[in-house]
Design a protein around this nucleic acid. Sequence first.
DNA 1: ATCATTTTTTGTCAAATGGCAAATGATTTT
DNA 2: AAAATCATTTGCCATTTGACAAAAAATGAT
Lengths: 189, 189
Amino acid sequence: MEKFIEYILQFGNLNKQQIELITSKGTELKLGKDEYYWEAGKIVKQIGFLIEGVIRVSYYNNTGEEITRYFIDENHLILSGNSIDEVYTPSEYLSAITSCKLIIFSKKDWKEINETIIGWETILQKITTKYHKEKIARRGEMVAQDATTRYLDFIDKFPTLINRVPLSFIASYLGITQSSLSRIRKKIR
Amino acid sequence: MEKFIEYILQFGNLNKQQIELITSKGTELKLGKDEYYWEAGKIVKQIGFLIEGVIRVSYYNNTGEEITRYFIDENHLILSGNSIDEVYTPSEYLSAITSCKLIIFSKKDWKEINETIIGWETILQKITTKYHKEKIARRGEMVAQDATTRYLDFIDKFPTLINRVPLSFIASYLGITQSSLSRIRKKIR
DNA sequence: ATCATTTTTTGTCAAATGGCAAATGATTTT
DNA sequence: AAAATCATTTGCCATTTGACAAAAAATGAT
């Protein structure tokens, strides 16, 4: 829980009372490997903060292939709702790649926090904007490179993930086949 | 100018006085083809709204190639600053692909509007979020497809641009060479 | 209209990647 | 430990794309 508080404090100040309120509302959730955090189409009923593990965001493209859109690693908020979104289309799946530990808040509690803590909106706003930008930056430059460069970029940007994410997922994130990625690895090794 | 007001009104209400304030502060700016709206490294001293024309957002990658990150077409705000950003890295160039007409506001006037009109922040917030999402959605699915699919997607998402943007820029947006794009065009024609 | 310039198309060949299947390696289960 | 399962690597061949160069088409200036 402290991790979550620490995270929030990066974006704005909170007094003791406020921290207590937040702490009292959060519950721990454990996810086993390959369990879904949420599934396409289902209504998301909570807000989560990932303390441990890696979550994969995926969707199915028009040919039925499952594509990895994104990875979420430790110390990231997973939001959904109206203006503040970590997830963009209702057709996305979030599944645990490794076993995960999260702090979750029900929508109701989250709303209460929002209504009680002055400046909470602003804090969320900052967080959201920061991650929007990160994502755009990460993704934006990926299109215009060959697969090897993209993989190198990936290592650069997600250094902690390389050994925790199966090759097949990385490949689907990079937009290449497993085989190709395997060959690329061999080449640059 | 009305176009800009119209645009803003989609995101929130304004009374007559407020509209007048905004109108009084905006200036028209014309850009010739290939002129820069802003250049990497330079300080942006204004906020713009594109009424006519197409602007290309580009950057140079590590090998010195100029890559098109994005196109901005009619009726879009071009912002820069702190939390509200249309442009993400200070190394980006914005140049007019066609001749352009913009409404611009100096940072000072923009600040004044912001301080005078209650709810202005919220309106901007909505706009920002909307475009962040659009971009992510547009870009996000592009990596995992072959060039033909990406071109088809492009046509889908920027139907108004195909005939106004030179092939070379589209190619650089899609992450392929001109020749390849030319061949793809031929194939699907 | 003519010339010069720019943009787009095309050709050729090499390199990268995909699709498929088999082999190898790693992990888990029994 | 052996078997079963899953993940990764490799081989083979087809297709796509890149690099480079040249031709053709479009655009702009005079």
